[in-house]
Design a protein around this nucleic acid. Sequence first.
DNA 1: TCAAAAGTGTTTCGCCTACACCCATGT
DNA 2: ACATGGGTGTAGGCGAAACACTTTTGA
Lengths: 231, 231
Amino acid sequence: MSNTQKIKVAVDAIVFGYESNQLFVLLIKQKYGKFKGQWVLPGGFVLNNEGLTNAVNRELKEEAGIEVNYLEQLYTFGDDTKRDPRGHTISVAYFALVNPENLNLIPDTDASDAKWFPIDEIEKLPFDHNKIIDKALERLKAKLHYQPIGFDLLNKEFPFSDLEQLYMCILEKKFDRRNFRKKILSLGFLNESNKIQKKGSGRPAKLFSFDRKNYKAMEKQRFHFEIKFVK
Amino acid sequence: MSNTQKIKVAVDAIVFGYESNQLFVLLIKQKYGKFKGQWVLPGGFVLNNEGLTNAVNRELKEEAGIEVNYLEQLYTFGDDTKRDPRGHTISVAYFALVNPENLNLIPDTDASDAKWFPIDEIEKLPFDHNKIIDKALERLKAKLHYQPIGFDLLNKEFPFSDLEQLYMCILEKKFDRRNFRKKILSLGFLNESNKIQKKGSGRPAKLFSFDRKNYKAMEKQRFHFEIKFVK
DNA sequence: TCAAAAGTGTTTCGCCTACACCCATGT
DNA sequence: ACATGGGTGTAGGCGAAACACTTTTGA
């Protein structure tokens, strides 16, 4: 039985990027096959004796010349045996975040192009890739509430308003700036630098950075990140 | 490349059962191969043109004659290419719950035996099965807080104290009965039947049941299940 | 001096927590 | 009568929500 199994194993990555109040997803233009020329999620078949995480990182490098900031397994799609017209293929989807410094794309072997698409301008994609993106977005929204994951989408040093806007943009909600700031600062893992960022008109902003070491330490001491919103 | 891929795809299931204040995991005795005679998680290779969920349900039926009450994908293990000595194999692990009415096991083809093991009496298992169980237990504990998943481990009708004890047993915490009851009842998805259960000595208990329809309806209206505990 | 964005404090309200005694049944 | 488990109310504290004006800069 096992020696006649003809199921192929692929990985796909949903990479989110954020800039100037917009959430982006990375897509690549398919170079070969039935969907040649169409935009799809980066990914591909896993190599023999290659671990899944390695496969994702390899594909991201090959197809878009990108290194991600955060990577976690999302879901394995394999209930529909005809999801890939090339034959029975399961796809282990990964969820990734890059910060603006890593937004540069260097298309390479497998893609004639790689490009960031605003999340709300993504059309119908081949395979079940729209479903995969939906699931990833759901995960991103959920995690913003209970993991300090937003920082992986921002520069190392950022004005507080960037964080505010990121939350409001991705969650599509408005909330009170004062309460949000109070809450985040009270958690005690933001370092206030003495740098200041000027940005056109308006009062210049202090820059903050996420203290990951401190956060990890707090996490071990039964601290739980959590942010709620109602309005 | 894709036509020379030699990676095998398996599914494994972590099935939890609960009875008289103990949490159990279903294991089966391996019938063939290197680990013959050892206890392992139920599971096996996926068939050609078989969906993943179908594969799990099939294996559970074949190996233990069981139908589960709740099933969700847990995680796909595939970073270690040598996790299975038979060759590069990835395993899509599923998380399942059965209620006491379905605790009966009918061992069949692939297992010379199937048995419930108390979670704290599980020894070292082959493959990475201990790691898989740990991850499943973590998921179970987490979900008890934010999904009404405990009901899938109880009878349809249950005295309130069963629910209480289930939470305390699985989370390994003690908490105030009055507060717990108040909280759960205030959520408004328990139906109080007029039946009463007598159980040895002590005052007989009203029986409750989980109103799944009502819960689903509430969920659609932005209601979120959540239970916190401190002490 | 006006526009634009940053920064800040207090009151109110609801929920979680802590806590102990009575009730119904079997023996 | 006693042992066993079921059932119940209230007061206090803490954190979330609501809410608007001042500050600093560029134009």
